[in-house]
Nucleic acid binder design. Sequence first.
DNA 1: ACCCCTGTTCGGCG
DNA 2: CCGCCGAACAGGGG
Length: 276
Amino acid sequence: MPELAEVEYFRRQWDPGLGHRVVRVSLHARKRVFRGTNARALQRELTGTRLLSSAARGKRMLFRFSNDNWLGLHLGMTGRLEIASPNFHPQKHHHLVLFQPGRALVFRDSRQFGRVQFHHSTTAPGWWDETVPEIVSLQFTRAFLDRFLTRHSKAPIKAVLLMQSGFSGIGNWMADEILWRAKIFPARRAGELNENERARLFRAIRFVARRSLRIIGPDDLDLPRDWLIHQRWRAGGKCPRHGTILRRETIAGRTTAWCPKCQYPERSRGIPLRNL
DNA sequence: ACCCCTGTTCGGCG
DNA sequence: CCGCCGAACAGGGG
């Protein structure tokens, strides 16, 4: 589930714990979500600290605790953050639980593509990369987009949109939504996009990011009815513009939905795609 | 039983 | 060394 707006939604789930002390830490130290992390050090150091603040950049979250402690979380495919009662009993998939006097802060992830990181230092951890511009920021410019498309000119635009080093927080559904809105066929090579297409792409990226962030919620129910997301997974899903049946195929290794009428596959010059 | 999956990383290859 | 692609990861749900 978690892409840009959903990550922001889950980050806020722990807000009730801000300013409060962690009295106990429960975790599944040997699980994959702790790969590369010293889970025991995390457990020892965080106990007794106070949750001070949190931030999200793209799909990543950083929680700051007193005594120079930092907790990084990535939700992967199935991760979520929840609030539970102080007497919460962690189950199989509750890999990290921070108990406070009034509540428990829960990180749950069944599939474990998510990740927990820990850092003890006066400064933010090295893995908290602030060099990639957030889409909803002044640093995300047409010039940045053009440079990125040029650098990855041979890759399908769908694959390029999924690169977190360029499009912080964009995942599979957002990429399809953006390309549909910009009327660009997902298998087009990034370097082949002309000026008009790049201008449409730039606007669509910012529009989808801004609108979804404004409407944030745990699922897609509240996004505008005329967005592609409501149609893209159902059999017989239709283009919200004119009702053409959407096509679905694996592009760039990911299931991709697009409208064969308004995303002009015939302009894709020799891309072998069956049944167009 | 079998196939699908809103993410990232790594090995192979050109 | 760089960039692209497919597989692997783990488990739940249709």
